[in-house]
Amino acid sequence: MINQVYRLVSPRQFEVTYKDRSIQSDKIVVRPTHLSICAADQRYYTGTRGKEAMAKKLPMALIHEGIGKVVYDPNNEFAPGTRVVMVPNTPTEKDEVIAENYLRSSKFRSSGYDGFMQDYVFLHRDRIVPLPEEIDPSVAAFMELITISMHALVRFEAKAHARKNTFGVWGDGNLGYITTLILKKRYPDSKVYIFGKTKYKMDHFSFVDEAYQIDEIPDDLRIDHGFECVGGNGSQSAINQMIDYINPEGSICILGVSEYPVEINTRMILEKGLTMIGSSRSGRTDFVNTVNFMVEHPEVVEYFGMLIGEVHEVKNIQDIIDAFEKDLTNSWGKTILEWKI
């Protein structure tokens, strides 16, 4: 069959590529229905990823957050029309120690490997996770972002000490919102604090115990563990602030991505005996855990719904461009694409 792939060929320019794909294989064919734009997609779209990276990775179909419906399963395990979450990480080997999202050989969609902006996506059987019908598709569209927090929490629980009375999350954006919500549901008897810069964003965090502006933190406040969800240049001050307010032997989980190295206070890391845990992306297990988390706590789907910024119906390339341009002006939430192209 001929599959249409909508690739970014240069900043703000998409073109259709036609690829001949055979259904006589072991791959499951999925028709995307709802996609979500990520900040990483925007860096490619606007050309701010850097000339070297752009030259190396383009042309490429964007989007690594999305859901769809099964069109064809050669093994008839999934009936046509079954809703599934698509897993963007694609490992090529297994390791007994290193998780699939940290293997250097793994491929990741919309990062040097075609993403979900296609008529049909051909996926290995372990790259889809069934999605219950009761979960809002616009929320499920950005489930990959939720899995990043879930993955970081699993790593944290495997490495951190047992005292978990107080948590601090730095970053009042999408990732900070998701992380604080999961922490509050996972540890209902613990205090969860959000630290941010923008009051109207922090007003969305109605479920936290306290919200603090980063320049108005009480001197005597202390946390047992911290999660950095800032990224970029701001991650430097966020991490150093966490080091100041964390109790000895606490853990600092770093989730935010920074393009450039940042300076941190290593002296106090040593004096306090802190553990720093880096997390990046996620794997299939994290998607399964996230779906189960939503089923066990159905109320969180409504909270996650607060992150839906705008929903755009996409029927042609111009609709794609319009959605990406509009997303650049959004100050809060995720831009969802209803994929009807």
Rank of each mutant, 00 (worst) to 15 (best):
H312Q: 02
I277L: 14
C229I: 10
I37W: 00
G283K: 07
N165R: 13
P248E: 08
P88N: 12
E133Y: 03
E52D: 14
M117E: 06
I2F: 09
G278E: 03
D319N: 15
Q13P: 00
M242K: 03
K27F: 08
Y72G: 02
M306W: 04
S106W: 02
N233L: 12
A79V: 12
T179V: 10
Q4M: 12
K51P: 05
I243E: 08
K159L: 15
K56T: 11
F156Q: 04
K315C: 13
T266Y: 09
I146L: 13
A162D: 12
I146P: 01
G47K: 02
S111F: 14
D244L: 10
F142I: 11
Q24P: 00
P59V: 08
V121T: 13
D41H: 02
S331V: 11
M1K: 12
I341A: 06
Y303L: 14
E210H: 15
D215Q: 13
M242G: 11
F142Y: 14
Y177W: 04
E77W: 01
Y102C: 13
P261D: 06
F207A: 11
G309P: 05
S25P: 02
D215I: 06
F156Y: 15
K340W: 00
S110W: 01
P218K: 09
V295K: 14
D73H: 04
Y45T: 06
K56C: 06
M60A: 07
T335F: 01
L175E: 12
R104M: 14
L328K: 10
S110Y: 01
L131M: 11
I239M: 12
V29C: 11
T166R: 14
H312V: 04
K334S: 05
K326Q: 14
M143Q: 10
W339L: 04
